[in-house]
Design a protein around this nucleic acid. Structure first.
Lengths: 321, 321
DNA sequence: ATGAAAGCGCTAACAA
DNA sequence: TTGTTAGCGCTTTCAT
């Protein structure tokens, strides 16, 4: 491996001139530059990325922090990797199994191993994570109000209102079940608020069946099995993600129920699962959310202007509800 | 940020002793070690990862190389990230949009930016990629016979034979359609061979409808639309992935056809899409494949023994076929 | 068991 | 416009 020194020697200049030439940074005469480029290509020189990282204390890497894998993660990842790549950044993916693992990532962020952090899901409190914002941009699609952390979330409150209204307009004051994420999540709180208000203004409705699942894996199956044991089964069930809704429907069908005949199901996020299962859902425009987040990181890092694309979620009506 | 020097000063020893103590490498007296650890924790010292990477010319990072995102990628990624993490390695994901981008990754692999390469999909020829195997382990789940590259593939030839036999046993010599990946892929070749042989021994069968899609996006929709224009529609269609099969079925249903009544569909890979769509498919045990590959990387890197888990794909019979 | 010292390859402040 | 020089923080060889 040729080093910058070899190139300098061959071109008859100093290391610094080579550095300037290679990085097009500072003054270098035309002829020097030509000589240097020639020498470099003859020696098949390419700068040591590791040395550069060390020297600059920056890796051009973005940490993408995930708890567990589920389909939306892949979409988020591929969209943002795309944006990052366009600006010369790479993505390192972390699946955190514990708080400590996440803390470890934060610590190595502090040590400049990562230039920014993209949280798909967090294990520590946001207030804890926010302390690390001094070392570089931290963003998330989760709903948080820490101003050190850029959060591009969708307000689930009006969205859930829309869904409830849609159900009411179509089916009247029926029994609506809710499959929700963990109750401490802000999105879940927003939904519960919408449900409460709806219940207030529609006293004949029944919104009593609510189940909570922090993880998407098997949530749909478990929710379905739970529902089947109910004496008074809901007419409509709203589920917090298409993936969970898909498993929910599949399990119900397996158990001899028909969707939408026996029970109607409304999903959330308009993923391929919803599409293929012909499911009514809401398009939360994941790709755009992801782009906003990554662009925000890039503009902070490169000190350029940032303007968020406005996202307008839409109900997508299909056959399941 | 405290450096190794600060710790050395505080503990009253030299940098080298601190280094030895921290890395439990070489002789350090019990008392020295105690002093050093104490000083380190008081100073809240943690070694600079960047300096260490630079010095050791190794990053403890595995490059995970993908062309485009599709659901199996996520599963492969999360499984292997898991194995890697257990051994202190991280995963950097690259979505290559062109040959050049892939070459760029290969070049930075050469520069020790990555300790190993995991190819989900390649853009350069294997023979080209194999040249880089001197810089570290390269593995793939694609079928290749370059001995520099570890390939843990599943032979689709007997598998496809099994599917064809299953269809024959159940439905007789019917019209079978095939939705395949690109014809130059080894897996596709293996399948075509199985189809040919089957056709030879079952002259009454019809295997004439074959369509090829290199990318999974919209393949199912396009295949379905193509099929609908056929004068002589297949009774059974075998599709190269559950994801594509799911979109295929969804499109057919959208167009008023019933599965399995009007047409039977057989998927491939036993993903959640297959599960939720109640699809007959074959379980290719992606998770185990992924583990084999990552374990192979680790054992090469850490110079430990490697033994591959044997994978036995199984037909999974559900409702669609 | 410990320390001194060299050096990994690069960038950037400063001097010329 | 160019060169000199001083590190960045760590590991490792060699001498003690």
């Amino acid at each position: 491996m040729a080093t910058i020194f070899d190139v300098a020697k061959k071109a008859g200049v100093s290391k610094s001139t080579v550095s300037r030439a290679i990085n097009s940074n500072g003054y270098v005469s035309k002829e020097s530059k030509k000589k240097i480029l020639k020498a470099a290509s003859e020696l098949n020189y390419s700068p040591s990325i590791l040395a550069r990282q060390f020297r600059k204390q920056s890796t051009k890497k973005i940490g993408f922090v995930v708890k567990t894998y589920y389909p939306a993660v892949g979409e988020l990842l591929s969209c943002s990797a795309d944006v990052f790549k366009r600006h010369g950044y790479n993505v390192t993916v972390y699946f955190t199994k514990s708080k400590d693992e996440e803390t470890f990532i934060l610590e190595s962020f502090k040590l400049h191993t990562l230039d920014a952090l993209f949280f798909v899901a967090n294990r520590n409190d946001w207030s804890y994570i926010a302390q690390y914002a001094q070392y570089g941009p931290i963003v998330t699609w989760r709903r948080t109000d820490h101003r050190e952390i850029y959060s591009s979330y969708i307000d689930h409150y009006p969205l859930y209102q829309n869904i409830l209204q849609y159900v009411y307009d179509k089916y009247g004051e029926v029994n609506i079940g809710h499959v929700l994420n963990s109750p401490e999540k802000n999105n879940t709180k927003a939904r519960l608020r919408a449900i409460d208000e709806f219940q207030q203004s529609h006293p004949q409705a029944n919104n009593s069946w609510k189940v909570f699942f922090p993880e998407q894996g098997h949530a749909g199956r478990d929710a379905a099995m739970d529902l089947l044991h109910l004496a008074d089964r809901p007419d409509v069930v709203i589920v917090y993600s298409d993936y969970v809704a898909a498993e929910f429907i599949a399990t119900l069908r397996d158990q001899g129920m028909e969707v939408p005949k026996d029970i109607k199901v409304f999903g959330f996020d308009n993923s391929d699962f919803g599409k293929f299962m012909n499911m009514s859902t809401v398009d939360t425009q994941l790709a755009m959310q992801s782009k906003n987040l990554s662009n925000r990181i890039i503009s902070t890092l490169e000190k350029t202007e940032f303007e968020a694309l406005t996202i307008e979620p839409q109900l997508v009506i299909r056959k399941s509800c």
